[in-house]
Design a protein around this nucleic acid. Structure first.
Lengths: 211, 211
DNA sequence: ATCATAGTTGACTAATCGGTACAATACTCT
DNA sequence: AGAGTATTGTACCGATTAGTCAACTATGAT
């Protein structure tokens, strides 16, 4: 093996992730990515057979490098469920804040944005990948919720239903954050909304005293 | 006025709405729209100065013809709040079912799909339009919730917060329906989720008897 | 009947799209 | 040093993109 592929491939993945996340798959061209990454087109197609393959690689890396560690840490077995949920909401908020600082706008959930765009005949590969990754995310949620149910921490009949509600609510908040370019909804509603879905005590944000 | 523009313009709007809703704005070309509508390109640019203008016209028509009547009817003043919410959830489900039958797939919320795709420098006009229309939708919700609070039908401090939660939850469910191409989430979770957000009694789906 | 005008048409851009071909280069191993 | 291969640069491809334009047709008002 001559040169061990130091950074070109990685630079392409990172650049593509940035550009696509802050706009959309369709509006980012291969030339855009190459220009922003300062990589020539020949190199692009040396590493990736197509634009879609790069997007898939970017998604897989995003999951392996960002999402999976997040879930592992947030839903670690030694953390009590109530704390897990709190950390979950907090880590989402933090990710969005960092992205906002970095890119100058609220970006929402990259998987949801890509998945929504990639429906329709073409590029079912990307669509399937998004679904697969959402499934993996929900597996973490389900494991946590199932043991909370088993331990009688929360009262619910159907873990799957709670997972769906939690996930869909979260995705909706992130999506509206992206569309309206504001973190307000996430900041105000994410944590209490999750707690309400799970039947946990909702902590009052400012005033604890009732009239 | 010679010929009163019978149907060409309308056909373009309808076709564009269909194509964009079932895939995305970026992946539908002007040629695609013209081909599907059986309209020549020259005619297209006779009625619309650009592709974006057609999309805006389609959105405005969708709002005026579909959304506004929906909201007017669902949130009519003589309907009790609990029933309003039930009808709201039901009408969303029905819209999605009809679309699924018509297009062979779950399409979700066209505004959210377009709004998510249209972020980034280009075409802020479309993005702004989506935000404007979501705002109008939320106005209907807010009016209904505010009077429910005033009438002590529900117990909430902040109407805006409830509006956001309701709207974001709904959008999330529709978005995940679109991405996963299934109505399961909407069918199972939409109505009870709304009721839970509003603190209404959640009706049990199948069994009414508790143990 | 005629004339202004709304509507239609198809041919036409210039730019960009994703992707390819291939020679030149840079590196590792022997 | 030299062989061999991974990587890069450049030039290119045909298809498609959004959008233009001048010519044409149908119509309604006078």
């Amino acid at each position: 093996m001559p040169r061990p592929d130091k950074g070109t491939r990685q630079k392409l993945i990172d650049t593509a992730a940035d550009l696509i996340w802050t706009s959309s798959y369709g509006s980012v061209s291969v030339d855009d990515i190459c220009r922003a990454a300062n990589v020539k087109k020949g190199s692009f197609y040396h590493y990736f057979p197509s634009k879609a393959d790069l997007a898939i690689a970017a998604m897989e890396e995003h999951f392996a490098e960002d999402l999976e560690p997040y879930f592992q840490k947030v839903f670690a077995a030694n953390v009590p469920f109530v704390q897990q949920i709190e950390n979950f909401a907090e880590s989402i908020l933090e990710e969005q804040r960092i992205a906002q600082e970095k890119y100058g706008r609220v970006c929402g959930c990259p998987l949801a944005a890509l998945g929504s765009e990639m429906i329709g005949e073409e590029s079912q590969i990307l669509s399937a990948k998004v679904q697969e990754m959402f499934g993996k995310c929900q597996d973490y949620l389900k494991a946590a919720i199932s043991s909370a149910i088993a331990a009688n921490v929360i009262d619910a009949k159907d873990a799957d239903e709670k997972v769906r509600e939690l996930h869909d609510f979260t995705t909706g908040l992130m999506m509206m954050g992206r569309i309206n370019n504001t973190l307000d909804g996430l900041e105000h509603d994410l944590k209490p909304g999750m707690q309400r879905i799970l039947g946990l005590a909702v902590e009052q944000p400012i005033l604890k005293k009732s009239l």
